[in-house]
């Protein structure tokens, strides 16, 4: 026998799952209720988790406990920038929010530029420069990768009309793209079935079976 609180939770969980699954038959008020509830809960959860797990330990507590120690007073700057973001809702001083936004965007553009160049462009380009004359199956796969990368790049090069040699190479690029889309689609199906299985497993093992005492 499950504790009452747990069984209420399971029932709410199960009924909301059925509300969402009911969309597969057709759109209905139960689905819309569950969808709206989920959206609202998610937003509330996000606000709560950021307050408790980030603002409290990293801002409020250090300022309250030791304002001058560890140069904690410097935290007033990000705090002010964060508050300034909300000035956009006050028309008279809405321009101030742009300063905070500029700092925010500037930081993340800087981080992302390094991240993309250092972490993706360079290593992925380096990984495409591979030997194709060593013989064996590895050389063959290397050749496939090189042809794939080259032909797909040609496909996305729009400064030259895609006819003649360029057209033929870009056609090869389309084939590579189609194969990669197929692989992605296969993985997507696998992911969606996993989610379906997760819900069905919950309904069968946590909701229906306990009802019948098995």
């Amino acid at each position: 026998m499950q504790p009452l609180g747990l069984s209420i939770g399971v029932w709410v969980n199960a009924l909301l799952t059925l509300c969402i699954l009911s969309f597969l038959y057709k759109d209905n008020p139960f689905f819309r209720f569950a969808e709206s509830l989920f959206a609202g809960m998610s937003l509330g959860y996000y606000i709560g988790i950021v307050t408790v797990q980030t603002l409290q330990p990293n801002l409020i507590r250090p300022l309250g406990e030791t304002f001058f120690g560890n140069h904690n007073y410097l935290l007033l700057i990000p705090m002010a920038l964060g508050i300034m973001l909300y000035f956009r809702y006050i028309p008279r001083i809405s321009w101030l929010s742009r300063i905070a936004l500029a700092v925010y965007i500037g930081y993340y553009v800087g981080v992302l530029m390094m991240q993309k160049i250092h972490g993706q462009v360079i290593p992925q380009t380096r990984d495409t420069i591979m030997p194709v004359t060593t013989g064996g199956i590895d050389a063959l796969w290397n050749l496939v990768v090189i042809i794939g990368v080259f032909s797909v790049l040609v496909y996305f090069y729009f400064s030259v009309e895609h006819k003649g040699v360029v057209g033929k190479v870009s056609r090869v690029g389309i084939w590579f793209l189609m194969i990669s889309f197929g692989a992605s689609f296969g993985y997507t199906i696998m992911a969606r079935i996993s989610l379906l299985m997760g819900r069905f497993s919950f309904l069968v093992n946590n909701w229906i079976r306990p009802m019948f005492g098995s």
């Binding site: 981080v111 390094m114 991240q115 993309k116 250092h118 972490g119 993706q120 290593p123 990669s180 692989a183 992605s184 993985y187 997507t188 696998m190 992911a191 996993s194």
Partner: peptide, 24 residues
Amino acid sequence: WWADLVNAQFSVPVAVGCTAVSAP
């Protein structure tokens, strides 16, 4: 992010367990 930022900039080995959608 763990690969293109943490591995790339700090050389920490990274392993990812991901949803199937992201795997390719």
